[in-house]
């Protein structure tokens, strides 16, 4: 049993499209150990989102190896990718994490539905409590929640299937600084308790202190000659 959660070897990716000069991304080697939390920073346009899209299976590598939790995730077919993502990967976006017309509980249950898991209401309540959210929010439509509350619900939703890998994309950009610190604290606590491998993407360097390692996204890529 490997304790390497993310294992990338010699991976290539290029955006398809009319523009022939799309950059070719090449990651020679990147490994993240299980339970590690990685802060990935870098200027916009440097490939942060590309890395997240590859790790979540939304984009497929051109060639090379992408192993997650010991499985060849990069080579999986569409349906298998979706099923793997549902079971093993949690994702939190910058904004719009939730389906606005569903009540909070339904949003959380939806994650369980796609992972074929029965949602345990007690663990939902426990997580709500640890994120300082009142239980009443469960029945409220998402649209009635504040942005900060929505982001915390998004964490509950992302962690409800106890995924081994959590991908987080600029979750604090819509929060003020005090809310941001509280958010980071609970996020790190929950991840630590569940021993979740976390890739956290942000351009806000001040958040780096919460993480085991901090990485400039540009350092992942090898410079390619065309």
């Amino acid at each position: 049993m490997t304790n390497i959660a993310i294992d990338i070897q010699n991976l290539h990716y290029q955006y398809r499209g009319k523009n022939k000069h799309n950059p070719l991304f090449h990651i020679p080697k990147w490994q993240v150990e299980a339970g590690d939390t990685v802060f990935l920073h870098g200027k916009s346009g440097t490939g942060k989102s590309t890395v997240l899209n590859l790790l979540s299976g939304i984009l497929k590598p051109l060639n090379g190896d992408l192993h997650l939790l010991g499985e060849n995730f990069g080579a999986m077919k569409g349906a298998a990718t979706d099923a793997f993502r549902a079971k093993h990967i949690g994702v939190v976006f910058q904004v719009f994490n939730l389906i606005p017309y569903l009540p909070v509980l339904k949003n959380i249950e939806l994650a369980g539905y796609f992972a074929n898991n029965k949602t345990d209401i007690e663990s939902v309540k426990a997580m709500l409590a640890s994120l300082a959210l009142p239980e009443e929010v469960l029945m409220q439509p998402v649209s009635q929640l504040s942005v900060g509350q929505q982001q915390r619900v998004a964490i509950v939703r992302a962690l409800i299937n106890s995924p081994e890998i959590l991908l987080v994309d600029e979750p604090t950009s819509a929060l003020d600084s005090s809310a941001r610190d509280a958010f980071m604290q609970v996020l790190m606590d929950v991840a630590k308790r569940k021993n979740t491998t976390m890739i956290f993407v942000s351009h806000d360097q001040s958040l780096a202190k919460y993480f085991h390692q901090s990485l400039d996204v540009a350092s992942l890529f090898a410079v390619e000659e065309h």
Partner: peptide, 16 residues
């Protein structure tokens, strides 16, 4: 579009 993105991320395939 956002809603579809959320569903995709939760593991819903295009067929779903």
């Amino acid at each position: 579009r956002n809603e579809i993105a959320v569903l995709r991320i939760l593991g819903a395939g295009p067929k779903t």
